[in-house]
């Protein structure tokens, strides 16, 4: 085959590769296979007496649009299986309603108030409809992204029953459960006995090493709650290791996870999870700036997750249209 014809084949393969997406090493196999097929076909035609130029053209025409061939190699991996679309929308709506009510409360309240573990501080200024709408939009984006992440996690875990769907931890074997229990035990010991030394950042300064603790007031004030949660989690892991996945271990799992969520909400409500006060003094880091930055990161993550979902949905419906008679 002449250099020009080789370039023609290469161009076709490059276009197919672009449509395949993914990592180059993942595409390599498929491209080599396609290239071998093209060369086999061309060889057959030239052996039968066809001019190479025509043979290449005919083979590439027969293979079809390289973008279409390449895209057919894309694995059908929707973020959410179709069966989960309705529960996803329902859970997002539920979370958004709760979140929205809290936002409304924070926007119109004159004084701080508490709802169970959630502590609501009024938003100082401005308290108007536009501000509420902006916050509600941000809330919706965040909820859509957060629920999507939770659903994707749950679908990857692949638990079947309702009880299974409500538990989060992955427990494929006894060895991993035992390792989980050991890790949780380590966290329990560190949080109680070595908190000041281990949950800290050490910075070299001209006067020596400065210790910046980052166990914030939220963790310290709610340590008993955290201890109870860690203890139930350790028992849960040991029960899983010993008895496997049974109804009572799943119930224990669910209770432990709900308790963990409650503890987390209490910690968040009580105060900062991470203490940035000292970091502010030593490093000149503004705690509010860090907080704003973290919020921005969360909203961006939610936007990316939502956009990914939307593009999957659009592509899916586009594909469905293509195959419908």
């Amino acid at each position: 085959m002449t250099e020009g014809l080789e370039q023609k084949v290469q161009r076709w393969l490059d276009e197919a590769a672009t449509a395949m997406g993914g990592r180059p090493e993942g595409r390599r196999d498929a491209l080599l296979e396609l290239e071998a097929t093209i060369l086999d076909r061309v060889e057959e035609r030239t052996s039968a007496g066809q001019v190479p130029d025509e043979a290449v053209k005919d083979v590439l025409d027969a293979l079809g649009d390289p973008a279409e061939v390449g895209s057919s190699f894309l694995p059908p991996a929707p973020l959410l299986p179709p069966a989960q679309a309705r529960p996803y929308l329902l859970h997002t709506a539920m979370m958004f309603v709760a979140h929205f009510l809290v936002t409304v409360g924070a926007t119109v309240a004159e004084h701080p108030f508490s709802l169970g573990p959630i502590h609501i501080e009024p938003i100082a200024n401005p308290r108007n409809v536009i501000d509420l709408l902006v916050r509600a939009t941000g809330t919706l984006l965040f909820d859509a992204g957060a629920v999507l992440c939770a659903h994707v996690l749950l679908s990857r875990i692949g638990r079947l029953s309702l009880l299974r769907r409500m538990t989060l931890a992955v427990r494929p074997d006894a060895r991993r459960c035992t390792m989980n229990a050991c890790f949780l035990g380590l966290v329990l010991v560190v949080a109680n006995f070595f908190r000041d030394n281990l949950l800290a950042l050490y910075l070299p300064t001209p006067d020596g090493v400065t210790q910046i603790p980052f166990a914030g007031p939220g963790i310290i004030a709610n340590l008993p709650l955290l201890n109870i949660w860690l203890a139930t989690a350790i028992v849960r892991e040991l029960m899983y290791a010993q008895r496997g996945e049974r109804r009572f271990t799943l119930v224990l799992d669910l209770v432990s996870n709900l308790f963990g969520l409650f503890a987390l909400l209490r910690i968040v409500a009580t105060g900062r999870l991470v203490d940035l006060t000292l970091a502010q003094e030593v490093l000149g880091v503004n705690a509010d700036t860090v907080s704003a930055l973290l919020n921005t990161v969360f909203v961006l993550l939610a936007l990316v997750a939502s956009a990914t979902l939307a593009s999957r949905v659009v592509r899916r419906s586009w594909r469905l249209k293509l195959v419908r008679p």
Binding site: D29, A30, E33, L34, T37, G64, E68, V69, S72, F73
Partner: peptide, 12 residues
């Protein structure tokens, strides 16, 4: 059968 159908199927 087209290659675009068969090869992805084999990989799957």
């Amino acid at each position: 059968t087209e290659e675009g159908t068969l090869y992805p199927l084999l990989r799957r």
